[in-house]
Design a binder for these strands. Sequence first.
DNA 1: GTGGTCTAGACCACC
DNA 2: GTGGTCTAGACCACG
Lengths: 125, 125, 125, 125
Amino acid sequence: MFQIDRFGRTPIYEQIIDQTQRLIASGILKEGDQLPSVRVLSQELSVNPNTLQKAYSELERRGLCISAPGNGRFVTADAFRLVGEEFRGRLDEIRRIAKELRAAGVPVEEVLEAVNVVYGKEKEE
Amino acid sequence: MFQIDRFGRTPIYEQIIDQTQRLIASGILKEGDQLPSVRVLSQELSVNPNTLQKAYSELERRGLCISAPGNGRFVTADAFRLVGEEFRGRLDEIRRIAKELRAAGVPVEEVLEAVNVVYGKEKEE
Amino acid sequence: MFQIDRFGRTPIYEQIIDQTQRLIASGILKEGDQLPSVRVLSQELSVNPNTLQKAYSELERRGLCISAPGNGRFVTADAFRLVGEEFRGRLDEIRRIAKELRAAGVPVEEVLEAVNVVYGKEKEE
Amino acid sequence: MFQIDRFGRTPIYEQIIDQTQRLIASGILKEGDQLPSVRVLSQELSVNPNTLQKAYSELERRGLCISAPGNGRFVTADAFRLVGEEFRGRLDEIRRIAKELRAAGVPVEEVLEAVNVVYGKEKEE
DNA sequence: GTGGTCTAGACCACC
DNA sequence: GTGGTCTAGACCACG
């Protein structure tokens, strides 16, 4: 369910958050679905329970899930909408990199092309 | 010549590396040009000499400059070509994020718009 | 585990790099083994943590180890192969010096003898 | 007459000493020959006069040349013999590297082979 | 506990 | 003046 890179520079708890969000965005996790418990998941991934706790707390803070003490942790009704907004925020990352590329003299066409290819079109605009 | 953000999460030495590469990419620093000395720059930016040393060492490792002990540090002949490759590699980052955005249902137009806006406006950083 | 010469002209951090490579080459350090932590080693050798950090960073750059932040630093799978190549490259140094000696009229027997003596005796350093 | 590498890690004055010794060892510079003056050579090589002064002083200290104030600097009668001894001292370098190679598991045959090839023989011993 | 970054200040060799 | 190395000590994020 999750794939952890222990040597990368992005913290494990962030990887958990990210991947959970991706699961919600892609519809694999839907409203009312139960998230794996900290204990189980910590064993499965050989990850410190505190790390998972931190990830889940953050997901809760963002309103993507809610814990029912003693029963587990469940995806909220708003989750899908919320991750949509969240992901849109990543356009900022695109902007940041694009700014660098512009400063480095990479033409806009190359950047647009990269995006278009990902979206499945050969050429556009 | 350099602009340091002391509160961001990216280390100062990386900012120096980045901006130096940008100066080379944009042709402001050319083959044979001397980089500002560690001491002088450290005063100018109020940054510790060691931090700059670290940045410069990394640039040297990447083949962008070379030090002549006692004389200073100079931009190499390959520098321009090397940073070109380096920056084009960042298109991969764009692709990676774009893939995530597509999966999250963000329409391609929004992504292209983000890029175009960056390339269209004057303001930087 | 390590032996530091504080009075020689070779920097401490290079000595660390060298000796670590030797430990890998001789199989004492194997894939997956954890390197002594910066803090612990710094105490053991009475060497500043930063100096060790520098050595380890370089080893990491060369692909001999990899750091899992918060967990430690581990020998990579490629390490053994890589140091093998590294060390064989030093035969070039031998060749360079031998060329000088030949030009200076030192007979080949003396050079071979020097090598044989080293390989023949037990004592080290 | 001299070839200077301004970017290498070996100091310029050492390069001068080295190359002068090589010229003596190979018989190009003989007893009584005049060395190029500091002024002339400094211009020719675009090297700081102080640097050359340092090199020449060291050569004098080793007894390879002697300065006749106002007349120039000349190779001594002992020079050839002395550089011979000096070069023989470089066997220590060979020993040092051989020691490293042994520790790294490189077989003695490879080292001997490297030496033999330089001395013009394919196989020996 | 781990690694990563930064500062302040020192010393050295070389030019 | 230049770069290179080292120490001491601090702070941070992560697990």
